[in-house]
């Protein structure tokens, strides 16, 4: 049984007929080709699949595509607007990644964090990113990147 859904993904309207069990992460990656969103643990823990759903960071491996019907979605592909988003630039400048697998989800979470708390302390950054696991960096440069992005965005 296919269900018709309509979404706005990175500013573009999308209409699809989907199986109810299709996960949002699979819709984005396999149906829409937006492979920037990663699937890591596939058990709602690692945060690699984080996207913005109506402006809130959520784990797209734990949301059904039908639940997102009518929503606005932003993936890592939708952040840059001619130039990198300040959080993307800050990750580049501060070497906030090594292998890069967690980075799209990490950056989306940082965008959400800075949206609700524009000047987070180091503790608030580490706490705010507890839903995103990085196996390479030890998080230090990620924290620096968020602090740098906060400074840029508060201009």
């Amino acid at each position: 049984m296919g269900i018709s859904i309509e979404l706005e993904v990175n500013g573009a309207s999308v209409s699809k007929e989907v199986e109810p069990r299709l996960l949002l992460a699979h819709l984005l990656r396999e149906e829409l080709g937006l492979t920037g969103t990663k699937i890591g643990c596939d058990t709602s823990q690692c945060g690699s699949c984080t996207i913005l759903l109506d402006g809130q960071a959520v784990k797209s491996c734990t949301v059904l595509a039908v639940q997102a019907d009518g929503s606005e979605i932003t993936t890592i592909e939708g952040l840059a607007n001619g130039e990198y988003h300040p959080v993307q630039q800050a990750f580049w400048d501060n070497h906030g990644l090594q292998c890069g697998f967690c980075t799209p989800g990490m950056i989306i979470s940082c965008v959400d964090l800075l949206g609700t708390n524009p000047q987070p302390s180091e503790d608030e950054i580490r706490h705010g990113l507890e839903g995103n696991l990085c196996r390479c960096t030890g998080y230090h440069n990620i924290v620096r990147a968020v602090q740098d992005a906060a400074e840029t965005m508060n201009g």
Binding site: L53, V58, K59, V63, S109, D112, L113, E130, G131
Partner: peptide
């Protein structure tokens, strides 16, 4: 509970 993403849902 959980983390930021989980608390939104």
């Amino acid at each position: 509970i959980g983390d930021r993403q989980v608390r939104y849902r």
